[in-house]
């Protein structure tokens, strides 16, 4: 697969990056998309296609779970794109578990983005309820991708509880503030044995590239694409940025250092 291709030159291909394994699935694209806030379903679908994503989240609250057909789900039937239902709206582990069970039943998937935010303003995730729900859902065979604050210890606890991936936030959701939690994200990435998906707060392609350069396994973007002046073009821009960031990471970037390193050392005359 050729993840990116410049439309004008056709022949100008980019190097492939390593596929990302989450649970039992491989992804070539490391850009995941949220599907809220788009001006129409048609536009949402176009943006999904343009982004090259293989995983999109869909809020259970928007889906007609008890009916045969649903408009959102139908528009997300894109070849190669998997659905990741999210529990946005629940406030407790108990509510999340019930919602997850219904999602599994009606959408035929074990995959779940676990979002428990009792605070409806900043939508910040509840660490205690998220851990409790992860323990239970992983035990029931769900592939849990847990949205949480950028808390390294919590991420280890979620890993031990059986999460398939952790999704720490870069900044409060929808704020476009970028990687405000950078110092904690670096520790999480360093320590994690499950994929780390930076979720929430990424407002510009450069910020997505930054997360990938740091070694994040993937990023999830929604608002920055959905409410852009041209969501389809922005989806492509994120696609390129995520790919560039990952390539840079795999190419091993030079270490950032505060001290200058002289190209002609002063003590070289001493020999080894």
């Amino acid at each position: 697969m050729i993840p990116c291709q410049l439309p004008d030159t056709g022949s100008n291909q980019f190097r492939e990056t390593q596929p990302l394994r989450v649970g039992d699935r491989d992804y070539d694209s490391r850009l995941f998309l949220g599907t809220g806030k788009f001006g129409s379903y048609a536009l949402m679908r176009e943006a999904v296609e343009a982004s090259g994503t293989e995983l999109v989240t869909v809020a259970l609250r928007r889906v007609h779970l008890h009916e045969q057909q649903d408009d959102v789900i139908e528009h997300l039937q894109v070849p190669g794109v998997h659905l990741l239902p999210n529990t946005s709206g629940v406030r407790t582990a108990k509510e999340a578990v019930l919602a997850a069970q219904l999602a599994r039943e009606s959408l035929q998937t074990d995959w779940l983005k676990l979002e428990i935010h009792p605070d409806p303003r900043y939508l910040l995730p509840d660490p205690i309820e998220t851990l409790l729900a992860t323990e239970q859902l992983a035990g029931e065979g769900f592939q849990v991708m847990a949205y949480i604050n950028a808390d390294p210890v919590l991420c280890k606890r979620l890993e031990e509880a059986g999460a398939a991936a952790v999704m720490p936030l870069g900044a409060p959701i929808g704020t476009n503030q970028g990687l405000q939690t950078r110092a904690m994200l670096e520790i999480i990435i360093e320590q994690s044995h499950v994929p780390v998906v930076v979720d929430a707060g990424i407002g510009a392609p450069s910020q997505a590239a930054e997360a990938m350069e740091m070694g994040a396994d993937a990023v999830l973007v929604n608002t920055a694409i959905a409410v852009a002046g041209d969501p389809v073009a922005m989806a492509q821009a994120f696609r390129l940025a995520v790919h560039a960031g990952r390539m840079a990471y795999e190419a091993r970037m030079g270490v950032v250092s505060k001290r200058a390193e002289a190209s002609s050392p002063l003590t070289a005359f001493l020999g080894n």
Binding site: S40, R61, V63, H64, L65, G89
Partner: peptide, 19 residues
């Protein structure tokens, strides 16, 4: 609403989210 480039949302909640 659609003519203005907005998505008219009929459903943005589900009773299943509350226990």
């Amino acid at each position: 609403i659609r003519a203005q480039g907005f998505d008219p949302v009929w459903k943005d909640w589900d009773m299943v989210l509350e226990s």
